[in-house]
């Protein structure tokens, strides 16, 4: 005898029309994302728009083709949990790259953005004017 978890009624069974409607929506969204990419929205919008449309499509597939809409909560929970960890991994690793000491990233076009203050404080222009390049052994004349 199963316990309470199995006591849900048979899942509702929808007609085939619903699947076709979802398919039409998916195709429309694909055309949409293609058109949006032609618009040259520029960063970061082109990325956000494309990912938002992809997420919408993925949502449709998961909810209707994969029946998450009808099924017991635990399956939804499993899927949602996996997405939380996807966001966690990508988010924190990206954050690291974005806030690192700039030279600790590989040489790239973005090295200069997101400079932490530690890097700014390195050597200011004019500070070394008194000495030879990279004056060593003598603190720069300052204040």
């Amino acid at each position: 005898m199963p316990n309470g978890e199995h006591q849900t009624a048979l899942e509702p069974h929808h007609g085939a029309g619903r699947y076709v409607a979802v398919w039409v929506a998916l195709c429309a969204l694909t055309v949409g994302t293609l058109l949006a990419s032609r618009l040259s929205l520029g960063p970061p919008w082109h990325l956000l728009v494309a990912l938002a449309i992809a997420a919408a499509k993925a949502g449709l597939v998961a909810l209707f083709f994969m029946h998450l809409w009808d099924q017991p909560g635990v399956n939804r929970l499993v899927f949602a949990t996996s997405l939380v960890f996807v966001a966690l991994l990508i988010g924190l690793v990206l954050l690291d790259s974005a806030t690192r000491f700039p030279l600790a990233n590989p040489p790239n076009e973005r090295t200069l953005r997101f400079e932490p203050p530690s890097f700014e404080t390195h050597v200011q222009p004019g500070e070394r004017e008194q000495g030879e390049p990279g004056a060593i052994g003598r603190p720069p004349a300052r204040e």
């Binding site: 000491f101 390195h122 500070e127």
Partner: peptide, 8 residues
């Protein structure tokens, strides 16, 4: 992580 500016 924050070197002072007058560091050699």
């Amino acid at each position: 992580q924050t070197p002072p500016r007058d560091a050699m």
